[in-house]
Amino acid sequence: MTAAALDLWRPVPMPVVSKVQETADTVTIELDARDSPVRFAPGQFTMLYAFGHGEVPISISGDPAHPERLVHTIRAVGRVTNPLVAVEPGQVLGVRGPFGTGWPVHDAEDGEVVVVAGGIGLAPVRPVFHALAAHRERYERVWVLVGARTPADLLYREELERFAGAHGFDLRLTVDHADDTWDGPVGVVTRLLEAADFDPSRATLMTCGPEIMMRFVVREALRQGVPAEKIWLSMERNMKCAIGLCGHCQWGADFLCRTGPVMRWDHAMHRFDVGGL
């Protein structure tokens, strides 16, 4: 067995250096990757291993300019994510990756960028904000349209507002259900898209969230005239290996761990409406 071949399956240990409680069930952790920097494209993911519990795919949510700091936002939804969310600084996790395709941050240059994210779907696009901010002059208007269930479920809220202020992003937030703390928009995220005043012929749209949400977002984007080949989405599937060998993430001929998770709408559209593929 060659060492290179082994690396595909074998994680690298990395210590947790910080942890931020984002919402009731979601945390952001930073891992020290100085010993094996994770150079990634926004949209890519890693396999995170919790000792004794197993591996799970998690999008990278950090700044691509800092491969020595691996940042993940994780929501506790299952057997492996529960212990991952419970880790504390000093503990060590296993990491493989990065894997998969990234958002079209280069293709989007010289035009407007519209990011539409909902719920935990904000985590995989967070590196896009860093990438756009790093070369802000290459983009026209940048729209960040974010939906969440309640104000308490909004991820990165303060940071997004800081980013929007510092880099001139048009940030719009909406929630499905308001509470006393919220005097902003109440309604679904597609409505932010209806209201955003961008030029559909010059815009690249990136959407990430539950599949049903993305279905409505894409429908609205197409209605506004964004071409199918300028719409990108991130598909989520059960993944066990992330290297195209376990078969779990197949969607038609795609292994979404390799030709996804990020893909263009015109590549996805014919399968999107066939249920249960």
Binding site: D25, V77, G118, G119, I120, G147, A148, R149, D153, D176, G187, V188, T190, R191, E194, G209, P210, I212, M213, F216
Partner: peptide
């Protein structure tokens, strides 16, 4: 029509868990 479409999406409560 638009309001109805939004109501449909909203009724799916897409950000809920499981």
């Amino acid at each position: 029509h638009r309001r109805l479409e939004r109501a449909r999406l909203r009724s799916l409560d897409v950000f809920g868990v499981a």
